[in-house]
Design a protein around this nucleic acid. Sequence first.
DNA 1: TTTGTTTGTTAAAACGTTTTAATTACCTTT
DNA 2: AAAGGTAATTAAAACGTTTTAACAAACAAA
Lengths: 347, 347
Amino acid sequence: MGERTRKITIKDIAAEAGVSIALVSFVMNGKSDGKGGYRVNKETAERIRSVAERLNYQPNDAARMLRSGKTNTIGVIVSDISNKFFADIARCIEDRAYKHKYTVLFGSTDENSQKLENLIEVFRNKGIDGLIVVPCEGADPILRKLADENFPLVLLDREVPGADLSSVVLNNRRAGGQVTEVLVKQGYRKIEMISYSMNLSNIREREEGYRACMTENGLGEYVRIHHLRHDRMDRITEILRDARERQVEAFVFATNTLALQGVTAIFRQGWQIPRDFSMVCFDTNEAFDLYKTAAACVSQPIERFGAEALDLLLKSIEHRDQPMACTRVVLSPEIVEYNKFDSYHKN
Amino acid sequence: MGERTRKITIKDIAAEAGVSIALVSFVMNGKSDGKGGYRVNKETAERIRSVAERLNYQPNDAARMLRSGKTNTIGVIVSDISNKFFADIARCIEDRAYKHKYTVLFGSTDENSQKLENLIEVFRNKGIDGLIVVPCEGADPILRKLADENFPLVLLDREVPGADLSSVVLNNRRAGGQVTEVLVKQGYRKIEMISYSMNLSNIREREEGYRACMTENGLGEYVRIHHLRHDRMDRITEILRDARERQVEAFVFATNTLALQGVTAIFRQGWQIPRDFSMVCFDTNEAFDLYKTAAACVSQPIERFGAEALDLLLKSIEHRDQPMACTRVVLSPEIVEYNKFDSYHKN
DNA sequence: TTTGTTTGTTAAAACGTTTTAATTACCTTT
DNA sequence: AAAGGTAATTAAAACGTTTTAACAAACAAA
């Protein structure tokens, strides 16, 4: 036991097959046929392939990277990888990347641009070929610099306004409108929004959607958006208490985290849903799914987020030399209305 | 725009500081002082350091790896990274690893040993220094081989019985017993368990705990464990229906996923909790937290899982030459009893 | 025969580090 | 003055690839 068996290298194969290492390299990279431009005798190629197979040759990625600069690794930086929404997307990207023989490096910014910068530095030292980023506040200059270097980059979930960057986002404006509309249709009028004070494109657009829907339905006078700092979530109780006094009927929560905080606070006060408040929110979670707490949720197309982002990135990596075309993919939200069907809970 | 600026190498620094590259290497690796055994003039070292700082030198990991074999990268393979429990642990590991200047590669097996094998191969080609694994069924031979090579390895959440491998696990037997006991204390007698048919150490021990608790409380006659295949979760409805006919009073769910499936099925039948059934389970989730669905949950010390596993792995990497000592860390569960306090829901 | 083309192959450089062994310069001690 | 020791430095090899440029052999065209 404990024998550390030396790894098989290209040299071993060359020796075994009685050819030069160059030939082995050509064959192993599939450059022997077609576009590569190298010409290798068919039989020789076959022999090399079989020897490699037999010895279970595994290329040394470090050497390959050092020489060619290509690592077949990409980075994915989100706000918090333990957040279900991002974890699900990450999983999709990982699976899809794997099929393309890419490995994925994950990182979380915690909405902190300094962390983002550090992560990018670390990842770049690792030699990643490209990057998928959920930009946090203050990410603009960091990402712009990256783009200026022509570094393959795709934004996810949020955008950096004014910068010419590829991105995959939800139609947040529409989603915000549609989900608000569910409440309006149910007859609620005094509907307010609970949102983040962070300046993020997706949040801002969700607010826009809410506002537009309210105005279109003649409820402009009730429009009110509460902005919470994410490090002062406790303030939500205060807001809710005040809202109840003002006879607010329903809430639109700008994110799932916010909704969860809100509902927890509501329950702590001894209030019930929808007896005392009604609500809609973004994304689903086990609690809302199971108990139909929310009147409706915005369901985001997770797999498409992952797939589109990865495909965009790979394309961008492939064409690193060209002047870089920016594609903007806008996905459509789906509204899941829980109250449409009879709830199995008697509230 | 678009200027790809060449990366600063050790050579540039050497030239700028007027020294050899070896000296730069010594200094950059902190081998210039203390245990490294190299001697570098203090002033020279300082000069090199300042030049490196000024030029913003970033070492090329590929080169470093190729030469030294060390990558400062570890792999973490779980069953499903989008599962909240694993996502949380992953996050802890990532954060902690980052502080030690390690990067983490994540992968999911989906409880498939073939995938595990593939992932390990890919990760090893990337040159990871060590591996943290949540072993799936059939992982034994794969992991044993790894251990035979003296490859730094730490098992997480589950163990491989009979193999001398380091691991960090919950005291699942105790947890299973304690959580069952909550139901017993509340007066339930006909308590059954819903579990997986997969042969995993943690599951088996949870069952053991349940069984022991029942027997100790003179309820041995009621012991019954239902085994579900995870690709046939739909069978749970059938089991529940049958259980209701047999007047089963409460369930112990062996995992959170199982509990979620179970409760969903229960609600679909129009039954309520705890009116028709009571239940306890492992781990928490938003639904159970918010609505106190479960009478109690086993709360696992997520951060300690991550921290202990990483520390064990790093230690093991550090002492790769030594014959490898196996440490087994067994963490204590915490039982969260929801019904202890007045629920704010009138059930 | 010479010249040119195609096909198959290879030697050797390069990538940016780490690390060994050698070298220099400067002190001590005899 | 010679010998030995220590401190500071460096040249050069090695890691395993990819890729360029050169070469040889075989054949075709002149």
